[in-house]
Nucleic acid binder design. Structure first.
Length: 428
RNA sequence: GUGAGAUUGGCCGAGUGGCUUAGGCGCUGGUCUGUGACUCCAGUUACGAGAGUUCGAUUCUCUCAUCUCACCCCA
């Protein structure tokens, strides 16, 4: 026997009936985001490695140890190939496309969304796979078009609340913070480092490492003993310049007016370097330790960092896998049942069965054709098992008389109908 | 990358150093060649991979893989 080939680590098959739920989520997103004037964008799964190094950040875990990256073959033997990577997230690709296609020349703001697979080489865990799916949206544009307005931040968050609502997801928490502009962030980092100097030796080993590599991360340490120390550290909020402070206040004001509940979490930090100012995260209790179902925020300097014009933006990414886990708590999506099982009896029924099936489908009635070698009892049993609503019996008698036996498998009731009348009977 | 626990048929799930092995669901056929879901009968298929210990291993040991959970990190 040939050896079995299995799906590779962290990759999984989505099978029916689960795919029904995924399609439901996708179509809900398409419908809802359209109402907010967002249009779909599809960017490649493979990008130049440098794109992620320059946007997500060279020193972030995502880039330096979790990316699937490789050197491509070059056309000329002498040349070195280009370094490529499977995208670990989608914002960088969207902003790259924004710059490459000069989308800033279009009127107004660009509002785009995407749904697609992302790849990170992490150790698999609940709610975490190496190929996972993100639903995201981005609003980008020149400042003159209003891209920096706090109204945009609030709009995006309100859209998310509407999505969770449509999907029937309850029990989420919205956490908000402002990371400040680039200078604020730099200034705060210095303040924080200075403050840490005296206390870090009393903290956990992870924090001692973080104090060196990424001081902001110390803030969301979960070790209980470290909490009092963390509480005593200076807050980001106090380092914000007046403009950023006002911006953040306005975002909160709009959310409050819309009755969207949120909690301020001054320790909420984002793991990607490009984030500035407003940062937010929706968490859900039912997900175990990977409780973040979506995260997002502003990235006012990203376009410039990628060689484009100044184009502030804000966006988010939803972990679709986690979103669906949260959904299962509250709601299950059922597949639409098959309308008709065509029980074709005996040799020579294939032609008639095929004609009837085509006719039904043209009338928007779903139909599948049974095996003509099955006998009637077995055909009916099969029809029931696969969940068909009706069985349409096609045999010698029907062909002769032109009247077909249509059996309602739910009630057991059976009627005789002319072929033209079949679709109408089935649709009720 | 670190730690802990798991891996038995299509699925769930018992169990054992030797007869290779429950049970349940499912599936196939018959009972019942044009009226289903029930019953009864029959059939159906497995010990993650590789080494080692042993007369003999699915069971014990080691290595690896995968899964699960947690850390890390993130969506």
């Amino acid at each position: 026997m040939a050896p079995l080939i299995k799906s590779v680590r962290g990759m999984r098959d989505l099978l029916p009936p689960d795919t029904e739920t995924w399609n439901f989520v996708d179509s809900t997103v398409h419908d809802l985001f359209r109402l907010y004037n967002f249009e779909e964008i599809r960017t490649p799964i493979i990008e130049d490695l440098q794109l992620f190094q320059r946007s997500v950040g060279e020193a972030t875990d995502i880039v330096y140890k979790e990316m699937f990256a490789w050197q491509d073959r070059s056309r000329a033997e002498s040349e070195k190939g280009q370094w490529l990577a499977l995208r670990p997230e989608n914002t960088a690709g969207v902003v790259r496309a924004y710059i490459e296609h000069k989308l800033w020349d279009k009127p107004g703001l660009q509002r785009v969304y995407y749904i697609g697979p992302q790849f990170r080489r992490e150790r698999p865990q609940k709610g975490r796979y190496r190929q996972f799916y993100q639903i995201g949206a981005e609003v980008i544009g020149p400042t003159s078009a209003g891209s920096e307005s706090p109204a945009v931040d609030a709009e995006v968050i309100e859209m998310l609340v509407a999505l969770l609502d449509r999907l029937g997801i309850q029990g989420w928490t919205l956490q908000l913070n402002s990371l400040g502009c680039a200078e604020d962030r730099k200034r705060y980092n210095e303040t924080l480092q200075a403050a840490l100097k005296d206390v870090v030796h009393r903290m956990c080993a992870d924090c001692q490492r973080r104090a060196q590599t990424n001081p902001l991360r110390v803030l969301d340490c979960k070790v209980a003993e470290d909490q009092p120390i963390i509480a005593s550290l200076p807050r980001m909020n106090d380092s914000l310049d007046p403009k950023c402070k006002a911006h953040f206040a306005e975002v909160q004001k709009i959310l409050t007016a819309l009755e969207i509940p949120f909690v301020l979490n001054y320790r909420l930090v984002r793991g990607l370097d490009y984030y500035t100012r407003t940062a937010f995260e929706f968490t859900h209790g039912a997900l175990g330790s990977q409780d973040a179902i979506l995260g997002g925020g502003r990235y006012d300097g990203l376009s410039e960092a990628l060689g484009g014009p100044a184009a502030p933006g804000i966006g988010f990414a939803i972990g679709e896998d986690r979103l669906i886990m949260a959904m299962k708590e509250t709601k299950s999506v059922e597949a639409r049942p098959l309308d008709v099982y065509i029980a074709s009896l005996g040799a020579g029924m294939n032609v008639e069965a095929a004609r009837l099936a085509r006719e039904l489908r043209r009338q928007n009635v779903s139909a599948t054709v049974g095996d003509e070698t099955f006998r009637l009892p077995k055909s009916l049993a099969t029809a029931s098992k696969i969940g068909a609503q009706y069985a349409l019996i096609v045999g010698e008698n029907e062909i002769k008389s032109g009247e077909f036996a249509l059996k309602n498998l739910g009630t057991g009731e059976q009627i005789s109908v002319r072929r033209e009348a079949i679709p109408a009977k089935i649709r009720g």
